[in-house]
């Protein structure tokens, strides 16, 4: 393709956008609203997943040993546990550390009354899991290791988190699929109207001897530009909105931010920006190329 043909094609694509303002606006509004919903949903879902993930990591199990078990055996048990694939982290807490942390958390100055460590047999491993749904399998395994006296765990938390995670995955896939289907349908409709308005021009081009590629290109560029604009607008809105909501939550519910860990706007946009732009431009490209193809057999 000649350079001036390329520029001509891009210029025509831009002209098309301004030539049918109402159709262009309708297309941009459609993509924008779909991608806005998508972005909104994405922000909520990723934050929720992040919260669940953090909660999962906090849901650990505590492994206690038989009284007077040798340090060597304790070390062996630690090695056995850390070999398991579902274990993300294992941390040894000595009896002294356990007591120190208990004093700090609950007793404060009242701890001075104790001369001996009441938690003498409380040395333990704190084990965190990478996948909370594997908790009961891991517990069964650890219970079978000789030298293990007791395991503390939270079954309810584990099953609840597993359930929420699955639910979020299904719901998000479902809603995103519906949104995309609606977008493609609406864009195809809008492009069809746009093309029928310019059918005459396409016919003249074909009579003069324009190749399919030459006829299609301006429309495809138009579609991609509409998709691009349709993606940038909701991204901007969500960026501003996200910051406002986060500031509001931090300001009004400081308690919540201690319990739940929210993602920063940059963490969200690192993924949301390329995905939204890709979907916008992709929908514009697909919608226009499929629709133009239908009108090319002169």
């Amino acid at each position: 393709m000649r350079i001036n043909t390329l520029f001509y094609t891009i210029r025509q694509g831009l002209r098309n956008i301004f030539r049918n303002k109402s159709f262009t606006l309708a297309s941009i509004a459609t993509i924008s609203s779909c991608l806005f919903l998508f972005g909104l949903f994405f922000s909520i879902v990723t934050n929720f997943q992040n919260i669940v993930k953090n909660a999962e990591q906090k849901v650990g199990i505590t492994v206690f040993f038989d009284e007077g078990l040798e340090d060597k055996r304790i070390e062996e048990i630690g090695q056995l546990i850390s070999k398991r694939p579902e274990v993300s982290e294992i941390h040894f807490v000595s009896a002294e550390e356990a007591w120190d942390s208990f004093k700090e958390d609950y007793l404060h100055e009242y701890a001075d009354g104790f001369t001996e460590n009441p938690l003498e047999n409380s040395a333990n491993y704190r084990v965190n899991l990478s996948d909370v749904s594997m908790q009961s399998a891991l517990v069964t395994y650890i219970e079978s290791i000789p030298g293990v006296r007791k395991i503390n765990r939270s079954e309810l938390t584990a099953t609840t988190l597993t359930g929420i995670n699955a639910l979020i995955a299904y719901v998000s896939v479902g809603i995103i699929a519906i949104l995309l289907a609606v977008s493609i349908f609406l864009i195809s409709n809008t492009v069809t109207i746009g093309i029928s308005v310019r059918k005459e021009e396409i016919n003249i081009m074909k009579y003069i001897g324009a190749t399919d590629f030459f006829v299609r290109s301006p429309f495809v560029i138009e579609g991609m530009l509409i998709g691009l604009i349709g993606a940038v607008i909701p991204l901007g809105i969500i960026y501003v909105l996200y910051n406002i909501v986060m500031e509001y939550i931090i300001d009004r519910f400081p308690m919540l931010t201690n319990l739940l860990s929210f993602l920063t706007v940059h963490e969200i946009f690192n993924v949301l920006t390329p995905v939204s732009l890709g979907i916008g431009v992709g929908i514009g490209f697909l919608g226009s190329i499929v629709t133009v193809r239908k009108h090319l057999r002169v």
Binding site: I204, G209, T211
Partner: peptide, 19 residues
């Protein structure tokens, strides 16, 4: 397309691009 480039065509209703 290459074939049609050998033929010029004129219609009764002119078919110009109005814009």
């Amino acid at each position: 397309p290459k074939f049609r480039r050998n033929i010029g065509i004129v219609f009764q209703d002119f078919r110009l691009l109005k814009d």
